[in-house]
């Protein structure tokens, strides 16, 4: 149970960073923390202590296999969600670089073309 709570704490840290920090780079890093906390949570759902690879061989006892094998589905799903996170992070970095070109700063407070 403790590991899930730690994941949620990590989630809260990421959310705090996104809400409070004023620097574009720090916001991107906070987003990374947030993303990985969710991924970590998801992958821990499929984790089993001393688990075996989820490949059923011939002559293996089915009940024992189910009890021992790790859940492969979260691993596949987390791989997908990491790719999505990668795409968003690259896009964020690209736009942050363009914003730095325009304003010469990473400070959100100095980007005031839009209001409200």
């Amino acid at each position: 149970m403790l590991i899930y709570v730690l994941c949620i704490i990590l989630f809260a840290i990421g959310l705090y960073g996104i809400v409070v920090k004023k620097n574009l780079v720090k916001i991107i890093i906070s987003f990374g923390i947030l993303d990985y906390s969710v991924n970590l949570f998801f992958i821990l759902l499929g984790y089993k202590r001393d688990g075996i690879a989820p490949i059923m061989m011939k002559g293996q006892d089915k009940a024992q296999f189910v009890a021992q094998a790790v859940d492969p589905l979260p691993q596949a799903l987390v791989l997908t969600s990491i790719v999505i996170g990668l795409g968003i992070t690259i896009l964020m970095v690209a736009i942050a670089i363009r914003l730095y070109d325009k304003y010469g700063t990473f400070d959100v407070m100095k980007m005031r073309k839009l209001k409200g």
Binding site: I90, V93, A94, I97, R98, Y100, D101
Partner: peptide, 16 residues
């Protein structure tokens, strides 16, 4: 491609 794109952005900025 993403890496190269980010590198080229930085070069464009330096020229300014």
């Amino acid at each position: 491609g993403a890496f190269i794109a980010l590198v080229l952005f930085r070069v464009a900025k330096k020229e300014n």
